[in-house]
Amino acid sequence: MDRFFAMGGYAQYVWPSYALALVAFVGILVVTRSTLKKREAEFERLKRERQDG
């Protein structure tokens, strides 16, 4: 197990690369989803306002 984490002595390069990729991908996903939710809510609100009026 230790050998796996050591990455043949290159741990300081391999793991940050993968961590960064993870952060980038999860980041895009979270930002995209939250924006989508926000827009959906806003659109619903506008629709309701128009119906009320």
């Binding site: 995209t32 989508l36 959906e40 806003e42 659109f43 506008l46 629709k47």
Partner: peptide, 23 residues
Amino acid sequence: TILVLRMRIEILNAKIRNARITQ
């Protein structure tokens, strides 16, 4: 996956804009 989600956002943006204009 992200492309489809982001296209939904763009379409919603357009719809919201249109709704604002009619308002």
